[in-house]
Design a protein around this nucleic acid. Structure first.
Lengths: 237, 237
DNA sequence: CGCGCCTTTGACGGCACTCAATGAGTGTGG
DNA sequence: CCACACTCATTGAGTGCCGTCAAAGGCGCG
């Protein structure tokens, strides 16, 4: 399975890289989150392991050092919705309330930095910068969730696939070669995009036939980004 | 708790009818947000008016005193996604970043209490309780958004309608008579649920034929809540 | 090699979308 | 007061996209 393949990613300490609203790190701007570092513990979770369960008390929050994580909600009948994929540098658990509303699972083997939530709260009370940073983090999660709402509510299958590939390409560090490494399974992708695994495959195959992408072992190469961008927001029909 | 997007219900809110008189001022428990009151201004927006536009700088945040509000995102081609319906007592704009990610529009005539955002931020810096409250507000919005993700990604049309009716019923103050007042149009409902207006109508009609609901002028009466609850999470097929 | 898991492709059917027409409710002007 | 226009809601007919079911192909691993 693809997920076993370990994504080799530099444990970039730059936590706000992906959804940064703060300017990118210039000289050496201290991140307010660095305050937490002394209270952190490093933990490793194996492929497909559960990091936090749906409904668990929110005792810890996490930063991803290496590997990918998915956040998942389940219905009683087994239907699954993947709310987000998280990669090295991303944070999670900071915006949960008393309990975690959805599970966090390891897409690949994952190395995490873990911080006790009560300490984070306590620190935030005294440190304005940290408190603001935490609020921004949550606001950014919210913004991401809302763009996902548009995707799930109003986009066709091919648009979803195109949007997904572009999102992944944008979040991945290496912008150069345009090869999107996808450690998650097709099932994960399907549950993220609100469709079935077969529909994911078929649309990827169509893009391949069109020459828009190439499907390689361990990833997808974007051959025609412009075409993909047009597909991502095209009209139905 | 199915969902107050953007929000927390105020103890006061009873003004669910469009043109109800102002909420009753009860001796409410002190809310950290009361600190803002002295800086608030009351504004009125007419039916279908725009309160904030998509991409506008986030200068103000709001509390709804009377009437309903919808938060909307648009695609270039006109496709629309309603992210949330807000009713009296609900707050919004508190969790936006520098700009409002989506528009806020008046579903009915609306009376708002408006607070300058920079003042809110400044106050939060000094007041722990307020800062925490703001963070919780955003976290609650996020939780709501995620349950909406499940609805859009994984629920059938009839399940969406059932979920929607129950959500509205739960958020409305009077749980007694089970009449859900719906000031928004079918188009709004459709854009909230990620479907077409016709599909909304057809599914409502089916529920009416089943005796689950009754469609009245200005609202929908829930005749069989248990049935509705079963429909809301039923298996496909 | 054989087993298991994931992916891909095909055939088929149904749910929801599209197009279209009618009904219901409201406001306006003659 | 009624005719008319306009908007929104409802219902019908037909189509198509995507889900379901099924089978074959690819890859890792014992």
């Amino acid at each position: 399975m693809h997920g076993t393949m370990q994504t080799v990613m530099q444990p970039t300490a730059n936590a706000n890289k992906h959804h940064a609203i703060n300017p990118v790190e210039r000289p050496a701007p201290r991140d307010a989150l660095d305050l937490l570092e002394q209270f952190g513990a490093t933990v490793t979770i194996r492929h497909d392991g559960e990091i936090v369960g749906q409904g668990d008390p929110a005792e810890f929050c996490y930063k991803i050092l290496n590997g990918w994580v998915r956040r998942v909600t389940l219905m009683e009948d087994g239907r699954r919705q993947v709310c987000a994929f998280l990669m090295p540098g991303d944070l999670f658990g900071f915006d949960d309330l008393v309990t975690h509303d959805f599970a966090a699972e390891a897409v690949s083997d994952v190395v995490l930095r873990r911080y006790p939530r009560r300490l984070v709260e306590a620190l935030a009370d005294g440190r304005l910068a940290l408190a603001r940073r935490l609020r921004d983090l949550t606001a950014i999660s919210l913004r991401t969730a809302h763009s996902h709402l548009m995707l799930l509510g109003r986009k066709s299958a091919s648009e979803r696939i195109a949007s997904f590939l572009l999102e992944m390409a944008e979040r991945l560090p290496e912008h150069g070669d345009c090869v999107v490494c996808l450690p998650m399974t097709r099932t994960d992708v399907a549950d993220y995009l609100g469709m079935t695994i077969e529909t994911v495959c078929r649309n990827l195959a169509q893009f391949r036939r069109d020459g828009t992408i190439a499907i390689e072992r361990g990833g997808i190469a974007i051959r025609n980004r412009v075409s993909l961008e047009m597909m991502a927001s095209e009209l139905r029909h």
